[in-house]
Design a protein around this nucleic acid. Structure first.
Length: 362
DNA sequence: TCTGGGGTCCTAGGACCC
DNA sequence: TCTGGGGTCCTAGGACCC
């Protein structure tokens, strides 16, 4: 037991297994063993939405989350398709988070079904941390009757990648000494913040694995990716300093968007939908006692071309008419000539708590 | 086979002020 | 009258997360 040993952190990342479909299986025992897909209505292969989650039986048919629901239907028309009960999912999530909080004060939710725990103060070493991870899995099974996969590592990045390493119902521990060896063979896509686009750009540079990224010249990465290049390089070596924190950061924006069941040409239909989206945002703003100053609309055309237009108002406001007037004005810019419209959305940002001083700010 | 909806952060150019 | 540079805000778009 040395001083340097005490200085290192030990982080857990907990990731519920195929969360939505697992809850559906739990609620409907008859679903067990059958492919279950949570997402949009497949409409016999004509549906427009996507798969949100599916269980492992559905994955055996090649179905993945994010896939279009009609593609999923084509791969497995006999699967059980459900729209999902998000109120229930949120309730289950709350129970999960309450359970996890009992293991450490340093706790950070990451979406509905994932969380980080900094257990450095709760355990002496990785062996202890492994025992604790087993207790976490046990407690979650007891409280919500669902399985999860846990990653244990010296920081959030490594813990997150580790939790993804063995699924479902997995437990992967990566100690400080093992970090670089663990990361090196993994494809860059496994890295947090490296998505499909960045993966493609890295491939053009001959970089496929995290090990390739780690051994790459930093200057070359900076030239290609700017400040992010330096970060990618550090992360590839397993260096990630972001702390586990549940600092309740002020919300930055609030919005709604809707894809039409079929593409729309009639602008009145679009404007009516826009008004409805504004009403929902307005209700949320009033309920949360928030004022906003910037309004942004989004329009996606039938060919998926998308534009956004925004404007910052003169005053902070939470009045519905201000929102609807601004949104209508902004959206008209994109509707000069008739085109097929797939989606319309509104978002407010530049938020401030109202604290009894509405419409005062210059 | 087309591609949801809720968000956050970053970049880059232009306007404007000192 | 011309010129530079730093800082901040606004806008549009892109990439990423679950």
């Amino acid at each position: 037991m040395t001083a340097s040993c005490k200085a290192t952190r030990i982080i857990l990342h907990v990731d519920m297994d195929h969360f939505f479909s697992a809850i559906e299986e739990r609620e409907h025992p008859a679903f067990k063993g059958q492919p279950v897909v949570v997402g949009a209505d497949p409409k016999e292969g004509q549906g427009r939405g996507v798969v949100k989650t599916c269980n492992y039986e559905a994955r055996a048919f090649g179905i993945r989350s994010g896939m279009s629901i009609s593609e999923a239907w084509r791969r497995c028309p006999t699967a059980i398709y459900v729209r999902g009960d998000y109120r229930l999912y949120k309730d289950v999530s709350a129970t999960i988070m309450r359970t996890l909080m009992t293991f450490s004060e340093k706790f950070q939710p990451w979406g509905l079904d994932e969380a980080f725990l900094d257990v450095s103060s709760e355990v002496r070493d990785y062996a202890d941390a492994t025992d604790l991870a087993v207790s976490v899995k046990h407690d979650l099974l007891w409280h919500v009757n669902l399985t999860c996969s846990v990653g244990v590592g010296p920081n959030k990045l490594v813990a997150k990648i580790a939790s993804d390493f063995q699924k479902p119902d997995g437990l992967t521990v990566v100690t400080d000494d093992e970090v670089e060896r663990f990361l090196a063979p993994l494809p860059v896509r496994r890295m947090l913040w490296i998505g499909a686009k960045t993966e493609r750009k890295l491939k053009e540079l001959g970089i496929r694995t995290i090990g390739d990224l780690a051994s790459c010249d930093v200057a070359a990465l900076v030239e290609r990716f700017g400040v992010m290049g330096r970060r990618y390089h550090r992360w590839a070596h397993g260096v990630y300093t972001s702390a586990v924190g549940h600092r309740r950061r002020m919300r930055r924006s609030m919005g709604h968007e809707r894809t039409f069941a079929t593409d729309i040409v009639d602008r009145d239909v679009v404007l009516t939908r826009l008004d409805g989206l504004c009403e929902r945002i307005h209700q949320r703003a009033v309920k949360r006692r928030m004022l906003f100053k910037t309004v942004t609309v989004k329009v996606r055309f039938g060919n998926f071309q998308t534009f956004t237009h925004g404007k910052t108002l003169r005053l902070f406001t939470n009045r519905l008419t201000d929102l609807q007037t601004a949104a209508r004005e902004l959206v008209q810019r994109g509707l000069k000539e008739p085109r097929r419209i797939r989606l319309v959305g509104v978002r407010v940002s530049n938020l401030r708590s109202d604290q009894g001083q509405a419409n005062l700010d210059p």
